[in-house]
Amino acid sequence: MASIWEYANPKKFIDTTDRVIPSLWIISMVFVVLGLGWGFFFTPDDFRQGSTVKIIYIHVPSAFVAINAWLMMLVASLIWIVRRHHVSALAARAAAPVGIVMTLIALVTGALWGQPMWGTWWVWDPRLTSFLILFLFYLGYFALWQAVENPDTAADLTAVLCLVGSVFAFLSRYAVIFWNQGLHQGATLSMDKKENISDVFWYPLLLSLAGFTLLFLVLVLVRTQTEIRARRMHALEMRERLAE
């Protein structure tokens, strides 16, 4: 019987992803290049924001991936807690640095965008602040992985931290909104997007969103493979120590 859990076997996971990864690299790169190329060179300048608006093609996708990377870590942690599949825990570990980088990109591009628009690099706006807090959560999560030696213990501890952290990150998000209603425009991504953004900007944005998401996916797969191999090395070393 074929089951999705078969892929939880490290060997099977590596074999399958080995076949998928090269094409995923290509597809994600095509999407990113198309989206960014179209966005940067073939869209008109915004009548208010000028060409600055084009940073949206990096800013929004990276922010999108940064948030969803955390959600993916949450799901992976839950799978680890419930079903004890090691690949799941390692995938969560693999996603964290990618999430950190994406959060950083979102913060930096946001600052670059904010400077000409609001006249300042940084404001304590709810969205910006939430992102900064998300960044702190990522750092804590990753630091815990690094600090614990025994891989199983680390997986358990970080999984619980991810669960608790998710609840508190969610609370922080609403606390921050309560704390300060800000400058940041409303969400770019929502069902009634037509109100926020016109089609000319929307299609290239969709492309680069897809590109960033695929890029995230392929990076996580590659990193998970690396983690699995590192883990295998660890297992072999242990075996050797045992043989002594």
Partner: peptide, 15 residues
């Protein structure tokens, strides 16, 4: 004493 040949649990999957 456990022998190397008798690795237990998940480690099999990793070796």
């Amino acid at each position: 004493k456990a022998r190397p040949g008798e690795l237990l649990g998940f480690d099999e999957a990793f070796s």
